[in-house]
């Protein structure tokens, strides 16, 4: 268990990690029609899904200490995202015959210049169907998504563990786990929707130019998480010190 002040800092750090992670996860609503690169849903919803998977994974190792909880959350979240990417790619490739290709890279508008996949070196130009902004999740995008999911899962697990530590002296263990889980999910949702305003419904992860507005997400999530953390700290301190109104 950690002391309440450290737990408050952990909630703030976790909230910021959650917000920043959304920039790394490739998602696009038009991806559902194979008209853009990324998993076929809104960035916030996808990140929230990955975060919730992380919190579930973290809950299994809650008694093992802080490090296993964070690792468990991060890995659970990354696994969820990778399985989604794999299944999405299989459906796109074998269902409608669209090869995974990064639209931003193919049109030379990627963060890193050039029209090749930065990791595999595969040429992207010429593979995007006319009128679309790429389709599927190529290797570089999948790697970016995995990094994002690791960050998001770790952030969710941090918040989860912090709230669990704060509420445990007041309520029974199984109730503390439930309450910490739902509060962590709340913090996750509050922070994962803020970057969506910056991303405008679509991102390809690190390789999208929108990564340059990450500082706005950082500041917003820092302020929001700080307010939420202070409220949780104040209420839990009141509850633990026996001030039950």
């Amino acid at each position: 268990m950690v002391d309440p002040l450290t737990a408050t800092i952990m909630i703030i750090a976790g909230g910021v990690l959650v917000g920043v992670c959304v920039h790394f996860i490739p998602a696009s609503a038009t991806g559902a029609m194979a008209a853009a690169t990324g998993i076929a849903t809104g960035p916030s919803m996808l990140s929230a899904g990955a975060g919730l998977a992380g919190i579930y994974a973290a809950a299994y190792s809650i008694d093992s200490g802080l490090a296993p909880v964070i690792v468990s959350g991060a890995v659970g979240s990354a696994l969820m995202l990778l399985i989604t990417i794999l299944c999405g790619n299989i459906m796109l490739a074998f269902g409608i015959g669209a090869p995974p290709v990064s639209g931003q890279t193919a049109s030379g508008k990627s963060t890193f210049s050039g029209t090749k996949d930065i990791i595999t070196g595969f040429e992207q130009e010429g593979y995007a169907s006319p009128g679309t902004d790429g389709h599927g999740m190529p290797f570089q995008t999948a790697v970016s998504g995995t990094i994002g999911a690791l960050m998001g899962g770790a952030g969710g697990a941090l918040v989860f563990y912090a709230v669990y530590s704060m509420t445990l002296p007041e309520i029974a263990t199984e109730n503390a786990v439930t309450l910490a889980g739902i509060v962590a999910a709340g913090v996750f949702l509050i922070n994962s929707v803020l970057p969506a305003y910056v991303l405008v419904g679509k991102t390809e992860g690190v390789f999208d130019m929108k990564i340059r507005s990450i500082h706005r997400t950082f500041i917003s999530c820092l302020v929001t998480s700080s307010i939420v953390a202070c409220v949780i700290y104040a209420v839990c301190e009141l509850a633990v010190s026996g001030v039950m109104v």
């Binding site: 809104g42 960035p43 919803m45 709340g186 996750f188 949702l189 509050i190 929707v193 969506a196």
Partner: peptide, 21 residues
């Protein structure tokens, strides 16, 4: 920049977290 669903989830997250805490 986000869907209606995200706004609903976000709003309810703030409200529910406040009430639970």
């Amino acid at each position: 920049g986000t869907g209606n669903a995200s706004i609903g989830y976000w709003g309810a997250a703030v409200g529910a977290t406040s009430a639970f805490v």
